[in-house]
Design a protein around this nucleic acid. Sequence first.
DNA 1: TGGGTATGAATGAAGG
DNA 2: CCTTCATTCATACCCA
Lengths: 220, 220
Amino acid sequence: MDQNTNFHQQQQQQQQQSNEDAGAAAGGKSSSGSYLCRQSSARWIPTGDQIRILRDLYYNYGVRSPSAEQIQRISAKLRQYGKIEGKNVFYWFQNHKARERQKKRLTADQGCCYSGTGEMTDGGSTVGWFGFETAFQVTPWPYNCGQEIVTPATAAAAAARAIETLPLFPVHAQEEQNMNGNYQQHQSRRGGRPGGGGGNGASLELTLNSSYFEPPPSSM
Amino acid sequence: MDQNTNFHQQQQQQQQQSNEDAGAAAGGKSSSGSYLCRQSSARWIPTGDQIRILRDLYYNYGVRSPSAEQIQRISAKLRQYGKIEGKNVFYWFQNHKARERQKKRLTADQGCCYSGTGEMTDGGSTVGWFGFETAFQVTPWPYNCGQEIVTPATAAAAAARAIETLPLFPVHAQEEQNMNGNYQQHQSRRGGRPGGGGGNGASLELTLNSSYFEPPPSSM
DNA sequence: TGGGTATGAATGAAGG
DNA sequence: CCTTCATTCATACCCA
């Protein structure tokens, strides 16, 4: 029982131990197209190493939209760590990029700068979102008004060479596997006073129709 | 030990049978003896008011997939009732919609169970992608050393208007006594997730551009 | 205490 | 590209 041992990683690299997953590839997918029961993983479940590499390519080498050949190369490479297809790599980059943008879009925009509502005091907590983060590198996202991923030019330049030869460093795998999980959202006092405190029901009706049109209270 | 002492929030209308405002009392106590763990719970725990509003938007106003701007607005609004981030709102709608659908599907589905589809024997594994890669042949090297990324926080003004003009809460916000009778969610607790860090250590250096991979998907 | 359920969060895969 | 769907994991929280 790990009770509070909070060291569980946020990320879930579910199964898919090593290359070759039981059944799935072995033609086990035939029979039963029933949606109710998934006979085998219909979808690719990246292994920790695969994710590590992909993330490295993305953050350290600036790979964002690999071309077909690159995808082939990458997938071939990653295949060493588990079953994978080109489309998986393709989708991975697409999703990763899209989500990064989405996150940005959802976290800050109009206001530019945090609002002094009092709750948002924590700078880092608000940006938990996906918690992407290279295992080693850093990609300090300029949250807030920032609107760009830095990715040092060096890395970009290196990317060119990287892809061609795809160095891919020897993934030093061990220790932390929670590359993705690490966000610490302190939502401590979210309930500063939730409705319960004192008969919320009634007070609610007014708040909505009024504020919705106005800019956030105290924001900006 | 009272590990978490989760005093997150009161209210947790699982099945909102009684009422959200019911257990609101607890709020307010700050800092419990909990150490070692962000008792603040890693995940967002909506307050009764927040849920009420979200549900109202969902059921009474048909909001199902709010846009980024709407999400921001909504979250700003809900922030009055407790800490919340844009992603929370985003996920809330996504989950709510998905689950409603799933439920419906599960209950109304039993009649048609096809079994027998999946004609795709084990063959298409690696190549089930048809000409996908070919289609992407278009850009050999999209990323020059410059990291494109266009400004995100731009074209959005138009969409923003949507929510502003939305009817949004006339004055009565509640009464969405949810007509759901019983929830019957199946849960396939399959667990798993091994691999994690353990073991690779394979040196990953190599040269893909050589000829390790199959010939480039140059047109099919 | 443990099981069960509800639900937040994450992400692969597509659709448009 | 952006949005949406489906699935699954993780966890809060209830109840027996």
